[in-house]
Amino acid sequence: MGKSLLVSPSPHLHANVSTTSLMRDVIIALVPASIVSVLFYGWAALLVFALSIVSCVLVEWVITKYLMKKPSTVGDLSAVVTGLLLAMNLPATTPWWIILIGAIVAIGVAKMSFGGLGQNIFNPAITARVFLLISFPSYMTNWTATQGFISRPDAVSGATPLGVIKEAIGSGSTIPEYLAANNLTSVTFLQDMGASLGELSSIALLLGFVYLLVRKVVKAWIPVSIFATVILISGIFSLINPDIYTGPVFNIFTGGMVLGACFMATDYVTSPMSTLGGIIYGVGIGVIVMMIRYFGSYPEGMSFAILIMNCVVPLLNIWFHQKKYGRK
């Protein structure tokens, strides 16, 4: 017999799944939300998306090729996901050089310096967002009101719903007074305000998340425990004093809540492995984000909440394990 045969230990079959296919699913899940934000914010948003993705992929390619001198890992599409998520955390007016700095921080600092995919402690896109927010606050909070497609945003300096409410309460007003004074209902208030590219399209994001659940790419417990905690805390506070504390619906659909809970907090690398660990991680994010929103100096705290809980993940992985067969 001249033919040589393969010999290897079992199993001899493999599920049709790869890192690339999982990342591709995340990209597909982010498509509806990306389309919505491009439709609302126009060409500028498209440019931010393109620039962010290209920079992230390029930074990873350069680092693997010239610094690490290893085969490039851009084929696994994880840099594309980071680029996409970073873009969703930026206003449509972000200048190109800020995006590039963001990509260098996300890929270079948060991901590759730890050893690349699977090794990082902090979510790369969020690390970059927080870095940019602290370094360039004026650019990063230059929110434009929704403009519609093809209209170039002319950089009307607006603020996010979370921002204006915080300002109004800070100046001694109450939420109902603010809405009445500006001739708004709670529905139009949400629609009209400016936001980051990803924030506006909560429904599109949830749709994408359902796709990930159906494809069994991620599990629901982390987002569910975040949402449940946020609803519980904001429900109690807004019942006690609706004049200065925003309610559950407002808190779920504003800021980076849906994007953060469904796509950033569920990042494989920076979230706990066990179910119980994941629930504690989600509750922790929910508590921290509400504390920042109600009592902090920043109007939004989703990024900080996720980064803080990222630090706890190694401990959660040591403390909590899955139930083993035949053991207590």
């Binding site: 079959l13 493999h14 995919l117």
Partner: peptide, 15 residues
């Protein structure tokens, strides 16, 4: 169906 593919980094997906 059966040939092992090249190993890459663990992404801690928990599968």
């Amino acid at each position: 169906a059966t040939k092992r593919k090249a190993e890459s980094a663990c992404i801690r997906c928990g599968r």
